[in-house]
Simulated assay, not measured.
Amino acid sequence: MSGPDALTRSVLADQVKERLLEGILDGSYPPDSRIVETAVAKEFGTSQAPVREALRGLEALGLIAITPFRGARVRRLDTEELLEAYVVRSTIEVLGARLAMANLTEADVSALLAIGEDMHRAADAGDGRALAIMDASLHEKIMQVSGNRTLLRVWRSLEPLSRTYITLLGPHSDPRWTCSLHDPILEAVGRRDAEAVVRAIETHFDEVRERLAGHLAEVAEQQVHGAESQATGTS
C-alpha cells in the first residue's frame, strides 16, 4: 500500500502505539496481561491494521511479546534487563550532552530551564504523571540539541523501557526526589559547564539505578516471604 492510505494508517499506528504505551507504563496493562487486537481496534475506533502495526512497534521496544495463536502479552521485564538499559542510556546521554553543549544557544538554555521549572511545579503538586512527562521532555531536549539524529533514534528506542521504573516504583516514588536529580544538570547547563553536565547525568543514572535495584530487591523478598507464609498456612 502507498499514498495517502498508507500515511493515514502509519499515523493511526503511531497514535495507537502511544496510547498503549501509556497504558503499559501507568499499569492499565500490567505484566503478563493480554492486549487483544480486536478489542483495541474497537476501543480506538479503527481497523485492526494500525493496531497490528502498533503492537509490532511495541514488540520492537521490548515491551510486549507476540506469539502465534496466543496474541500479544505485556512482558514481565527482567530486573537485569531493565538495569542494563539504564547503563546504556547513561552512556548515550553522556555523549548526547557533550555534543549538545557544543551547540547550545541561549534559547536552548532558556527552554531547558523552563522545563526544570515545570518539573518543580509538578513535584510540589505531587503530580507524578506530569513530572514523568517533563522528565522525558528534559532528557529528549538535550538529545535533540546534540544534533545527532542517529543518537536521538537510539535514545528514543530505550527511553520507554527505562521509563518503566516510574511505574515499578509506583507509590514508593518521591516526586521531589525525582525532580531534585535534575537540578545539578540544569545548574551546569546554566553555567555552560560541559564536564559538570556530564558528571551530573552520570550521577543521575547511578542514583536512579541504585534506587530501582533496591526497590526490586525488596519486592522480590516480599514475594518470597509471601510464598513461604502461604505454604506454611496450607501445610
Rank of each mutant, 00 (worst) to 15 (best):
V74K: 09
V74P: 06
R76L: 12
L77Y: 01
L77I: 12
L77P: 01
D78S: 11
D78A: 09
T79M: 06
E81G: 12
E81H: 07
E81S: 11
E81K: 03
L82N: 04
L82G: 04
L83D: 05
L83W: 02
L83Q: 02
E84L: 06
E84H: 09
E84D: 14
E84W: 08
A85S: 14
A85G: 15
A85H: 02
A85K: 01
Y86S: 01
V87W: 03
V87F: 06
V88P: 00
V88E: 11
R89I: 13
S90F: 00
T91D: 12
I92E: 08
E93I: 08
E93M: 14
E93G: 04
V94S: 02
L95C: 03
L95W: 02
G96K: 06
G96M: 01
G96N: 05
G96W: 02
A97N: 01
A97I: 05
A97Y: 05
R98V: 02
R98H: 02
R98E: 10
L99R: 14
L99C: 01
L99W: 04
A100N: 05
A100E: 02
A100C: 03
M101I: 08
M101H: 07
A102S: 10
A102T: 06
L104V: 09
T105H: 10
T105C: 05
E106Q: 13
A107H: 12
A107G: 08
A107Q: 14
V109K: 11
S110N: 10
S110G: 07
S110D: 13
L112W: 10
L112S: 07
L112E: 06
L112Y: 08
L113A: 12
A114G: 10
I115C: 01
I115T: 13
I115H: 09
I115S: 07
I115F: 09
I115W: 06
G116Q: 10
E117S: 13
E117P: 02
E117H: 09
E117T: 13
E117M: 07
H120I: 07
H120R: 15
R121H: 10
A122N: 09
A123S: 12
A123N: 07
A125W: 00
A125F: 00
G126H: 10
